[in-house]
Amino acid sequence: MNQYRDKGVVLRTYKLGEADRIIVIMTQDHGKVRAVAKGVRKTKSKIGARLEVLSHVEVLLYKGKGLDTVNQVELIESSAPLHADLDRLTQGLSMLEAVDMISEDRQPSPHVYRMLVGALNALAQQASPLVLAAFYWKLLAAEGVCPQMDKCVTCNSDAPLVAFNMIQGGVQCKECRTGVSMSQSAILLLQQVLGGQLNFALAQAATPATAEITHLATQSMEHHIERRLRSVAMFERG
């Protein structure tokens, strides 16, 4: 069969011709898929609203030579709560951008899909200051570049940790310190994020430590994908 059904999150859309769109969708079983959605830019289109970025949808796709074609779309989860708040919307877009950069076309990666859905749901439910940072760290960990958080990454000793080195990928003690300095509370918080206490960490209120981790998360993600994240650049640095 040339037709297949899958769940996915719409990562990006590009205009195509007069009324069509190319959508890039992170699916559960087929990885990142590019597909043409015909006529979705017309007001009459029934599926246009469901194929906006951030939508979590179930789609019926028709396999083509290059691009697939979208046949049917059903909404699983509305992205309306995200669209109602500027901060949540931009954080959601930053998640999408990172996922788009990291994933390869048609390489099934159900864990990335599940993480993205989970993170977007978390973002929709509670505006935790750490959602975006936690998602970036978890995504990096899933990519196999989890930073070493328990011991100094240079000398492996148990000496007190004071800094973070992005290139070596982990925390450092005072003796080996070459990276940027990192506060004790930020180190503890990041250990919790990566060490199975995610929900506890997400419940924290905004502190300088959460800002520190968010900044480091963006930098580490940009270091990993070797380019700047445009959506983050617009609101955090500018």
């Binding site: 931009t90 999408l96 951008e97 788009d100 445009r230 959506s231 617009m234 609101f235």
Partner: peptide
């Protein structure tokens, strides 16, 4: 504005 394309307020 389009954050994913890098089109900002400026």
């Amino acid at each position: 504005m389009n954050p994913l394309e890098g089109i900002g307020p400026e």
